[in-house]
Amino acid sequence: MSPRRSYDQYCSAARALDLVGDRWTLLIVRELLAGPRRYTDLHADLPGVSTDVLASRLKDMERDGIATRRRLPPPGAAYVYELSERGRALLPVLQALGKWGEGELGELRPTDAVRAHWSALPLLRALEGEGIVEVLLEEGEFHLRLGAGDGPAYGDGPAPGPVDARLVLDSATCTAVCRGELTPADAVRAGRITVTGDGALAEALREGTGGREAGPGGT
């Protein structure tokens, strides 16, 4: 395990960056906000990270109390990594960073990797209420846990149980919402998001009250 590097500054921002400022650390947190993940799953959903760097970052996160490692009971019998309570507290940090970076998305570059669940955090910012929302994109499916509290913020694939609303949208619409250019309510009204479900959350989305307003650069 590598020794922790420090900015040696008596400043809370500098102390925070001592822990999560290394390359890849916050993106590992983004993946673990979905709940426990195996090392191989993390490596698959972090294209570009080397096995050595990923292993080193995970060890650092364990040492610093951001993540833990545990063995699943049989028949799984695999090790998984998951965020500690302190690690889960980084959700608003990731949300604020994502909001700040909306204008940097631009057009999809030929070298850009894409995973459907990378849209989970932007959609969590855009939606209001509490409940389970399934989202189906061309690239895949994931589910959101609005108002989840201490649990995972989202999950890859279909929800394991009942859902309150199901959203079907294309990549262009999802990108516009993630950039803050389009609200979910406006997308529903324009027929760009199809909402199904009988829950209060689905009804709110159909009525145009289930999302936040677009930012200053949006429409």
Rank of each mutant, 00 (worst) to 15 (best):
W118K: 08
A187S: 09
E31N: 13
A153I: 00
L127C: 07
G197E: 07
T40Y: 07
V29A: 05
E128F: 09
Y81R: 02
Y39C: 08
I66L: 15
A113G: 09
A148S: 13
A67D: 04
S171R: 14
E31D: 06
W118Y: 12
R5L: 13
A67T: 08
G215C: 14
L205R: 06
R4F: 03
A126R: 12
R63L: 15
R145C: 02
R189D: 09
L105N: 02
L127D: 06
M1Y: 11
I132D: 00
Y39F: 15
E82T: 13
L54M: 10
R30T: 07
A44V: 11
A34H: 06
L83C: 01
Q9A: 13
A55R: 15
V195A: 00
G155M: 07
E107Q: 04
L123M: 12
P92N: 10
V188W: 04
S56R: 15
D45M: 08
I66H: 09
P73M: 04
G215D: 15
E181H: 15
T111K: 02
A78H: 04
I193A: 11
E107H: 03
P75A: 12
R15L: 08
P74E: 07
S171F: 05
S56N: 14
I193V: 15
D198Q: 10
L90R: 06
T51G: 13
A159W: 00
R30I: 00
A202L: 07
E107N: 05
E130S: 14
L146F: 03
S12H: 12
A202I: 07
C11G: 01
A172P: 04
G208S: 12
L91T: 00
Y79K: 03
L54P: 10
V168D: 05
E141W: 02
L127F: 11
C174Y: 02
D45A: 12
L146W: 02
R125D: 10
P74V: 10
P110N: 07
R86Q: 13
D150S: 12
P152W: 05
G87R: 01
F142C: 03
V163W: 01
P74I: 08
R5C: 08
E102D: 05
P3G: 07
C174L: 09
L121Q: 03
D8Y: 07
I132T: 15
E62P: 08
E203D: 14
